[in-house]
Amino acid sequence: MYNGGKIILGLAVFAGLVTFPFLYNIGQADRQPDLKLDTPVIRQMAVKHCVEPKAFMRAEHMQLLNDWRNEALRQGNREYVSSTGEKYNISLQNTCLHCHSNKKKFCDECHNYMAVHPYCFDCHLQPKENVQ
């Protein structure tokens, strides 16, 4: 090979970059999110359900929260009718966090896992468990 040294150095850098995801995680514990639903309010519910079905909430909760924000603050509409026809008060503090009062073990579990930083609590008060 001509200029072999430089080319092999370049290829080593390339191989390092490509295999970075494999190398970076060596020795790091596989930590999967572990959601907790055992808050006092949820424990007292006869039929445990959220405002929408679980699969929908998993994929679309951020969209729902955004819509709720727009409805409540920009349209002044505080009433949400779910897909099952039930009526809910549009409020992060009084509806979502009423049941899910365990932000650390609910919201943060997945958000930290996925390294996303929602800006809900830039304005909203954090649930009491976090205020120390």
Binding site: M1, I7, L11, F14, A15
Partner: peptide, 10 residues
Amino acid sequence: VIYKVVSWGR
């Protein structure tokens, strides 16, 4: 990619 680059290097 390594094969290609090495073949060019030759």
